[in-house]
Design a protein around this nucleic acid. Structure first.
Lengths: 242, 242
DNA sequence: ACCTGAACACCGTTCAAGT
DNA sequence: ACCTGAACACCGTTCAAGT
């Protein structure tokens, strides 16, 4: 009786995933409901209206179909969201620049982290979905393998490699989910937050007033600063445990 | 016309917050709907059923009232969630241990970060709400002020202090939102994830198999490891820019 | 003045009925 | 076999009507 049907996105669920249906793209005559088209359209919609207003009805309409048809291809909304997240992991390599096989591990790690960060900030409204799942889909697995491989090849013992990967991963997710992303499409601007800090009582908030002008900085710069801290910490960790 | 009514949680919204109603606790005869009771009950409910199943109807029922009454005290669900988050920031000092005024800045920063982390993992289902807002409520402001004060007093220039604060904050949020928190109340266990990694193809995933046994470790240990990396990085940053 | 049942316009999901 | 309109049991939010 502990053999309940696994939740979408859980390890057991991924394990029992049937291989992707053979004809991913439908026949020439009818542009029906292919796996990829559904997931791409879902990502598109979440980008447009956000995860809250994204609905099965909306997705069905955009696909020119009905919700019941959607439910014949996917178990439910959760399952679609899980696939959207993994689809996003598949996009990361497109943003990987300036990293070659003989780069230092620091450059490789930084480059991969920035690629993942850029992918997530390109789809900021999807990033918050990462809070609810440990990404175990095929694309996520492939990315994890590459990152861990870099660390192990650089001399990190397995445990340190695992922890370094986790630390960087959580750092990225914490950053990418936060408001203040790339576009003016954000809820409220840095300018507004800065004005808010400036309006605070100088007697009660001296430190906030001093640091306020720098607080909502370029998200890219802030991200790189913290990432550099982690890499520096890792360098020291590696040399100390040779 | 740019003077639209501000979104709950936004800077302008916090700025125009009326002072908390005078009689927070209701009269002796009737245990009516006080601000604090609503927020505490909401937090309680989110802990129990998660943010998705938390509803205004459920909250009204638990309060022994109706949704319409709730709407007379709060503008809507968003507003309640914003207050729940700030309420949580108010709990952080309870978890602050082993830090005294003459501790090193490293100990103070680590202690504060761990207190915030512990608070959030105590309410893991609330943590994901942090993805949608820059916390600007009174309790969040007070915490920010203390943390920035520590860094400035330790010799960090304002910009470095701001960035260090942001880096640590995002690191904490990224960690606390992730599944794998304190209790068995989690969706799927570390054991299950470890078995999943072990089941992978050795030829395609050598690094994941090597690091797999360490991957879903104690969340506390993983958190502390990464935090230590950041603090080490900050030490080096501080000495290099004296 | 303060409260509420019932309504409105939505959800995710399912199912009988169509081709 | 594949699809769908309509239904079911819910949402957040509002409002006329009660005390």
């Amino acid at each position: 009786m502990s053999q309940t049907t696994p939740r979408p996105g859980s390890p057991r669920w991924w394990q029992n995933r049937p291989p992707r249906e053979p004809s991913a793209e439908p026949g020439p005559g009818r542009p029906a409901m292919s796996f990829d088209r559904v997931i791409r359209t879902a990502l598109e919609l979440i980008d447009e209206v956000g995860p809250d207003d994204f609905s099965m009805r909306l997705l069905a309409k955009r696909l020119g179909s009905s919700t019941a048809t959607l439910y014949r291809h996917f178990k439910g909304k959760d399952e679609i969201l899980v696939h959207v997240v993994d689809h996003l992991f598949g996009e990361i390599p497109r943003y990987l620049t300036g990293v070659s096989p003989d780069s230092t591990w620091q450059a490789k790690l930084t480059g991969s982290a920035e690629a993942m960060f850029r992918t997530l900030t390109q789809h900021p409204r999807v990033a918050s979905l990462l809070d609810d799942q440990v990404p175990l889909g095929p694309h996520a697995l492939a990315g994890r393998e590459i990152a861990l491989g870099v660390l192990l090849a650089s001399g990190f013992p397995p445990e340190a490699a695992a922890r370094a990967f986790t630390a960087v991963g959580h750092y990225i997710i914490g950053f990418a989910g936060q408001p203040g992303g790339h576009e003016a499409s954000r809820q409220y601007g840095k300018q507004e937050i800065r004005e808010f800090y400036r309006s605070l009582d100088a007697a009660r908030f001296p430190a906030t007033l001093a640091a306020g002008p720098y607080l909502p900085n370029s998200l890219d710069d802030e991200f790189r600063f913290g990432l550099q801290l982690i890499v520096t910490g890792l360098e020291k960790h590696l040399t100390e445990h040779h």
